[in-house]
Write a protein that binds this DNA or RNA. Structure first.
Length: 591
DNA sequence: GCCGTTTTCGGCCCGACTGTTTTCAGTCG
């Protein structure tokens, strides 16, 4: 059984226990375990097979580790089965209706016999739901509106969709409200999660009401969920929820901390503060004994007050970053300005939009020291892939442009298909003339795990294949990743000296963060590319950098942070020796 | 259920908002 399934079962157990009225701390323990397992960089079944002690994982103790072992060994969990048997089928979808929590769900079931969405809807129309204690007409009507939401299985929004909406929203609010000092996205968007549940906006202003009113009055708002003195929640016409929180400038640091970390991070941070005799809220830190309140205008000083290193936003996931910050062992994460090259770019020779000259000029203007033009290979007929003849004429053209240009080093490259049988789209003699070869899977993505894993490893064994492009081939919210054994891929990549790409396209974000984390631990050479098909798409590098940071990568883990001369020397080495060259100064951390 | 430079037992994050109530329970993030 895989981590995702195990996490889902613990999440369900938490929900059922909550309805049952179990101690809230037991519920939270299961929730915490679910979150941790979701983000674990290794599969639990492999840990169990290796006889590892699962209780070393934070939030996992005796009871939960025993349940994991049972699930891995027998593909089921007796405790879970018997717990589910106590509830009618479909009751969980009731609890997931916004506004219906565990208490109301239980009362609706026990007192009204409501066990699914249809019956809930009828009970509201018939007026029975509002007869429950502490319910009323208005509360019932609110729930009715939210049933529609629950039915549509309100899925999380890909960051590629949420980011432009947010940027427009911020620009609009700024234009309307002169009182705004700071306005930026918090929450999962600021942490660069691949999907977001809603858009959290953090604001400081001398006139909170001006900003809150401006949000609820925006034409794109179809529903106001809440509107108070410091916060407002709305739903936009495209179904995205926006939460806005406004405080005074003097509280900005505390608000940023409060509104950026995920739930687990915030809980652990406040727990850590409590042990120091301090209490954190969105306005500052309170000395519990004296009641004295300290204000924080920036995040750095707040973390410092807690005896912690500053924790970069991408790491605030409630895993082990607070422990690392206490020991001052957080890595010095890679930044956008550490990157000196982009090794995956397309032009209108294949399926890019812009001509070679424009892409080359844009790469130069971005200050890159080196870059590779990597149009598709002939097998991508639909993408106008290049034949060996065309790739030769493109390279002649590229050399001509490079000669007239002062500055960056231009690498001759390709993004070549790995065919279904693991053979490559170009013969070795064509590849031998190229400086940089990205090999990618673009077809037969539904092969079984063994087949597709061997297929990619076979490509890695070719001495000319420099990197594997967008290794999982997923498109967030649209296409599932291939069913490869990534642990095996990473070991093969480290073994053969093949780089694994961190593709910055926000629809891909591939490798993803937890894979990057594991690949780094195994000493895999990593390369951050944009895979830009237009000049503008080179901006996407920020997404790639964010994934690397979420995988705890320092510059030394990313090969295109090397200066040009060093990078060319690296490429000049036989592949096997490249790993060695990188790992010489690489010290993959214990975390 | 987990966990320990205050604990192997007794704690466990914190506040805003709503709709129902006349002081607060439930939900949410």
């Amino acid at each position: 059984m895989k981590n995702a399934k195990i996490a889902e079962i613990f999440e369900t157990i938490a929900g059922l226990l909550e309805m049952k009225g179990e101690k809230i701390f037991t519920v939270r323990a299961y929730q915490r375990a679910a979150r941790t397992i979701e983000r674990l960089p290794v599969e639990l079944d492999q840990l169990v097979a290796a006889n590892a002690d699962l209780r070393e994982i934070p939030g996992i103790g005796k009871a939960i580790s025993e349940k994991i072992v049972e699930m891995v060994g027998t593909s089921q969990l007796r405790y879970y089965d018997s717990l589910r048997a106590e509830f009618p089928e479909g009751i969980l979808e009731l609890m997931h209706v916004p506004g219906l929590g565990p208490k109301l769900t239980m009362r609706a079931w026990k007192e009204l016999g409501v066990t699914n969405l249809d019956q809930l809807e009828s009970s509201i129309h018939e007026g029975t739901l509002e007869s429950l204690p502490r319910m009323g007409k208005k509360a019932a009507e609110n729930i009715l509106r939210h049933i529609r939401f629950a039915r549509s299985e309100a899925s999380r929004i890909p960051i590629a969709r949420a980011m432009p909406v947010t940027e427009t929203l911020i620009a609009d609010l700024r234009a309307k409200c002169a009182s705004i000092k700071t306005l930026l996205a918090g929450g999962s968007l600021r942490r660069f999660e691949e999907t977001v549940g809603d858009i959290d906006l953090i604001c400081t202003s001398t006139e909170p009401n001006e900003v809150l009113n401006a949000l609820v009055d925006m034409p794109a708002v179809v529903e106001v969920l809440g509107h108070g003195d410091t916060k407002a929640s709305v739903i936009l016409e495209d179904g995205i929820q926006v939460d806005l929180r406004v405080v005074d400038e003097s509280h900005l640091g505390a608000l940023l901390v409060y509104f950026t970390g995920n739930k687990q991070h915030n809980i652990q941070l406040r727990d850590h503060a409590n042990k120091l005799g301090l209490s954190i809220n969105e306005y500052g830190i309170t000395e519990i004994e004296t009641g004295e309140v300290e204000e924080y205008g920036d995040e750095e000083s707040l973390y410092r007050r807690l005896g912690l290193q500053f924790i970069p936003v991408e790491l605030r996931q409630g895993v082990w970053e607070i422990d690392a910050a206490r020991e001052a062992s957080l890595p010095d994460l890679v930044t956008e300005k550490d990157l000196r090259g982009d090794l995956h770019l397309h032009t209108d020779w294949s399926d890019g939009r812009d001509p070679l000259e424009l892409m080359v000029a844009a790469a130069r203007d971005r200050g890159l020291e080196y870059f590779a033009i990597t149009d598709h290979s002939v097998g991508r007929g639909i993408a106008n892939g290049l034949s060996p003849e065309r790739i030769r004429s493109q390279n002649a053209e590229l050399r001509r442009i490079a000669d007239t240009m002062d500055g960056p080093r231009v690498l001759l490259g390709t993004e070549m298909d790995i065919r279904a049988d693991g053979s490559l789209d170009f013969p070795d003699e064509v590849l031998a003339d190229l400086d940089w070869v990205v090999a990618s899977v673009h077809s037969a993505m539904d092969q079984d795990s063994v087949t597709i894993t061997e297929r990619i490893i076979k490509a890695m064994r070719n001495p000319h294949v420099s990197a594997i492009g967008h290794p999982s081939t997923r498109r967030i919210g649209e296409r599932q990743p291939i069913d490869a054994d990534f642990e095996a891929l990473f070991r093969a990549a480290a073994d053969t000296g093949t780089a694994m790409e961190i593709n910055s396209n926000p629809e891909r974000m591939d490798l993803k963060d937890t894979h990057v984390y594991r690949a780094r631990e195994l000493g895999v050479p990593l390369v951050i590319d944009t895979d830009a098909h237009t000049v503008e798409a080179m901006e996407n590098v920020r997404y790639g950098v964010a994934i690397a940071r979420r995988g705890w990568c320092a510059p030394r883990h990313i090969i295109n942070t090397m200066p040009s001369a060093e990078f060319m020397a690296y490429l000049g080495l036989p592949k096997q020796d490249r790993v060695w060259a990188l790992s010489e100064n690489a010290q993959p951390g214990s975390h």
